[in-house]
Nucleic acid binder design. Sequence first.
DNA 1: ACAGAAATAGCAATCGATTGCAAAGACCCA
DNA 2: TGGGTCTTTGCAATCGATTGCTATTTCTGT
Lengths: 339, 339
Amino acid sequence: MVDGAKPAKIKNIAELARLAGVSAGTVSRALADMSLVNKETRERIQALAREHGFRPNQMARRLRTQRTGVIGVVIPLGHERRQHISDPFFMTLFGYLADELTESGHDLMLSRVIPGDDEWLDRIVDSGMLDGALVIGQSNQSAVIERVAQYYKPLVVWGSYREGQVQCTVGVDNAAGGRLAAQRLLDRGGRELAFFGDTNGPEIADRLAGAQQAVSVVPGATLRAFPTHLASDEMASQIAMNLDEIGASVDGIVCASDIIAMTTIRHLHERGISVPDQVAVTGFDDLPLSQRMVPQLTTVRQDIAAGARAMAEALRIRLDGKDAPSTVMVPELIIRESA
Amino acid sequence: MVDGAKPAKIKNIAELARLAGVSAGTVSRALADMSLVNKETRERIQALAREHGFRPNQMARRLRTQRTGVIGVVIPLGHERRQHISDPFFMTLFGYLADELTESGHDLMLSRVIPGDDEWLDRIVDSGMLDGALVIGQSNQSAVIERVAQYYKPLVVWGSYREGQVQCTVGVDNAAGGRLAAQRLLDRGGRELAFFGDTNGPEIADRLAGAQQAVSVVPGATLRAFPTHLASDEMASQIAMNLDEIGASVDGIVCASDIIAMTTIRHLHERGISVPDQVAVTGFDDLPLSQRMVPQLTTVRQDIAAGARAMAEALRIRLDGKDAPSTVMVPELIIRESA
DNA sequence: ACAGAAATAGCAATCGATTGCAAAGACCCA
DNA sequence: TGGGTCTTTGCAATCGATTGCTATTTCTGT
């Protein structure tokens, strides 16, 4: 015992009350620092509580007040079997969200979900444990999310915006981002392009659509899409397969994430293909590592911090029962070395 | 309404009971699928609950049962001002922990703490919100953790093991790891070594100590330590400064993490210094990215998945009130291209 | 057909903090 | 001195689910 003497274990307000010679109600008010109780009594009780290291039971408080102070952060892993969570993009976003929300006195509860049925989100929001929920990434679960959003207000989703949707989304304009990336490759003179990414979710699908759109207006330019998992062990071998299939026929690759781009560049390096001279490669996200690698990555930037702020702000509004609109952020092309 | 008809909002067990024509107790037991209630009644009640989308309030359940099912994951940011959380190592560990613990029916609550006083951990474990807590990284808070560990059993810490400690730690033998890295550089013929890392926490300090030990037995070999922050924006500029100060006098660098190594290699590349020919570089962690970069990283592997398993296992034992010993894992040198 | 065991269901206390309302005492001014 | 206001505290209901105990039926075997 360093600071000596935790005199006795007080386990609830009633005991503290007896010790202080007052009623439980008074203790409760004193601990909440309400001016309703005499300043002296208040301070005496607070001192006593501190001395005994007593802290009121949060479960009871939350049951009574009907507020939990907990925000659920949900990562649906619909089309990704494993370890989506280790995707640096999601983790960085998660970190910023933690910053924002702990600042406003909320706790974060993480749920990783592998949707087995259509009820996974209902289970989470109806659990009675949460004041609100943030869904990170729509995966292939947009329909479920949309249904829940119709009856559960304090829900904000990171993902693509669709005309007419009920859910409140925050995200970058993925189509515009895809367009920027492809355009960059075209501008450098590339004509035979490839796209690496898993288009099962709307976000990546939009990126591909944007890229296709850019390609379609340039005569003679083509774009082939190769399904490529995100942030899993499969990714590396899939990329290798893709490159084998492509051979030397491609001069530019639009990657759906920085991680995919990084892995792709690594594999090109192994095959003795130089980046960007023989094949140019673009990423997506602009993670910190994209400027730390060799070569530095030309990529489409999503402002993750701003996104987290927008999500937190929308959630705060919705916690108050008001409506908050979706946010579509404008992507920015960051030109470095790889394209 | 896609699946049509959430007939009415049932908000507690009593209402459902009235609807089913039984008592609240019976409903509670039925929902818990206890054989104590007649199979027919049970199924009827379950069907009714499903139909109305009713789920019992977790706060009430937890208050009554005195079990929350929530494990706190705490990341103390004692000597790192910001964004420690985005460190891929911690995040990967966090991901595996999520796997392990959700499997055994626990939820994870994340707390990032910037220790302002000596009570931060007490506040967390006494909140009454948690069944147990995992501390990821000791930072410079070992003393606080040790004090809390004396009265709070279900606590497991990722970090360095110290003889005689009360806290239950899981972690790699950092000194051995540092020794391995330095030894590799020495074996390659390096004699003027440098160490990049922030030695305020015991983990990195141990790695440095191990490296020093390896160097000390080789005549003519030297090791200089340079303080280098982890996973913050400062890191890059600090590394640049370190390299400027070093000049051409160093032929091997022991980095305290893969991220530091990656950034270091990037800066060496910019200065036209080849890795590993002119300067060899080792990392620490063996993150997935270490084999995806150019050049691939020679690094000291920590088996993160195994670590997470060990932490979860120790916690489970401690949740049952029994004692679980610390785990010290053996680090492994993974030789790739950078050293 | 009846004692005793087994299967069901209900009653009511309990977890611990919060809070509206009432009560008691202090104080003020005419 | 007496009516009225202000402070301060206590009382008891409440949040919603769980569970030990009891009460009522329904079997079972003889």
